[in-house]
Design a protein around this nucleic acid. Structure first.
Length: 424
RNA sequence: GUGGCUGUAGCUCAAUGGCAGAGCAUCGCACUGUGGAUGCGAGGGUUGUGGGUUCGACCCCCAUCAGCCACCCCA
């Protein structure tokens, strides 16, 4: 390990076992996405910085992106998110695409943040969006997809819950307590801080930000009002739809959900780890203007994004990551000695022709060592082709799982193994 | 970007400023045609890195890198 060059801070290394987990996660996202009729797409991994400058909030670009100048002197960045690339792609082919369109993606993103548990500088993110509809049905669908995914991962509503709110509802309510339009952003920010501070400190913070004592109390009542959604016919309708879809158990109204990204204009939602000290694992919402903002005609959309890092942390916490053995149906063809290597290679090739997963041992070693290798790798069958077998055109097959062994004619090897596999 | 804690064998961790260790793992042998078990043995370290203090530094000081935690922010 001397003179080892370290990996770049915050980047990920996927050893085979973790790669299996990533693929397993991907498979479930794909299944849920496609079951609702979503199509897979992807955007560039590098974008011009201008794409994000306007709409995602300044911090995301200024502080949290991997920005550099390319050889042509252009300021570019490793993509910190996908929604704006999506909006541009849609705007570019707005007249040929069929709406409403439903697209999903899973790929790498980069943010220049301080790494800690559940947060790295390089991460994978599931993005899923429905564009071209303004209805409560569309918004409800995305929440339902989120719930279906959690259910599929065997996560219960007691473990992760989806909290829903609506920005316009909040704006209306804030206007009612005489908060001026210009202050909305600042107030949204203090609402966001509510969970992190004791009530007294939070109230002090509100006053610091210019709220009158009376307004602070009104705001406190507002964000602790779990019935507030009843003031919104829109949210009422969303919850009704979710009930019919059978996913209500995962969904809660929460007036404290606002979300940081500036482009959300309607319903917003986040999935939270209920058991933990509260961290969002997924977030999304409705946006009215995104496509227009990148040069298209106005088109509304709704979508969410989920990072793999925090979600994997939670899956581990709840013991939901299966131990996958990719060699459970594989076989190892051993080599007995130098004279039998060709016979083993020949046997291995013929078994692969029969669509079996066949590993060979690449050098002549003691059988003990080769058996141990199979055991450590989780390979189920070990084949021995020694002088005795070759003389009688036999092959010995040991089933490491059931600790049984047979010697059979070589021509029956594939069918015998297939029979054992079918019998489990 | 700010503050705090931690870096010793592949892993988990010991070691008053005075000889760098244990368990697990690895490798070898017992076992010359058979994995998991047992026994015996072996290898493995510039104590994250670079300076400083000291007769002497894993230990104290400074810097730096990395991990974790709390902010900030967010997925």
């Amino acid at each position: 390990m001397k003179n080892k060059i370290q990996s770049v801070r915050g980047t990920r290394e996927f050893y085979p076992q973790q790669m299996l987990t990533r693929r397993w996660l991907y498979k479930h996202m794909e299944e849920v996405s496609t079951s609702f009729g979503y199509e897979e797409y992807d955007g560039p991994f590098i974008e011009k910085i201008d794409l994000y400058a306007a709409k995602t909030g300044e911090e995301l670009v200024k502080e949290q992106s991997f920005v550099f100048t390319d050889r042509g002197g252009e300021l570019v960045t490793l993509r910190p998110e996908l929604t704006l690339s999506l909006a541009r792609m849609v705007a570019a082919r707005q007249n040929e695409l069929v709406f409403p369109l439903r697209w999903w993606s899973f790929g790498p993103f980069w943010r220049y943040e301080k790494p800690q548990k559940g947060r790295t500088r390089e991460f994978f993110q599931w993005n899923i969006d429905l564009i071209g509809s303004d209805s409560a049905e569309a918004d409800a669908e995305l929440v339902a997809i989120c719930a279906c995914f959690l259910k599929k991962m065997d996560i219960t509503p007691e473990q992760i819950a989806i909290k829903v709110n609506h920005r316009k509802l909040m704006e209306e309510q804030l206007v009612k307590i005489n908060i001026q339009k210009e202050y909305l952003k600042a107030v949204f920010h203090v609402i966001d801080r509510y969970d992190k501070l004791p009530t007294d400190s939070w109230k002090a913070l509100c006053q610091e930000r210019g709220l009158a004592t009376e307004q602070v109390d009104q705001l406190w009542r507002l964000i602790n009002n779990h019935e507030l959604w009843k003031e919104s016919p829109y949210l009422t309708s969303v919850f009704e739809i979710l009930k019919v879809m059978g996913v209500s158990a995962y969904v809660k109204y929460d007036a404290r959900i606002i979300r940081g990204l500036d482009y959300y204009t309607g319903m917003v939602f986040e999935a939270w780890d209920v058991g933990g000290d509260g961290r969002a694992v997924l977030g999304g919402g409705h946006y009215d203007n995104l496509v227009a903002d990148v040069g298209g005609s106005p088109l509304p959309g709704v979508g969410f994004a989920m990072g793999d890092v925090m979600f994997t942390v939670l899956l581990e916490k709840y013991g939901k990551i299966p131990k996958i053995n990719q060699f459970e149906n594989a076989l190892l063809v051993t080599v007995f000695n130098q004279d039998t290597t060709l016979a083993s290679a020949d046997m291995a090739a013929r078994l692969r022709d029969e669509d079996l997963k066949v590993v060979t041992f690449p050098s002549v070693e003691k059988l003990q060592k080769q058996f141990k290798y199979a055991d450590r790798m989780g390979i189920r069958f070990v084949l021995v082709l020694g002088p005795d077998e070759i003389k009688d055109r036999l092959v010995t097959i040991k089933d490491l799982k059931h600790h049984t062994q047979v010697s059979i004619p070589q021509k029956d090897a594939a069918s015998t193994i297939k029979r054992l596999l079918a019998a489990q």
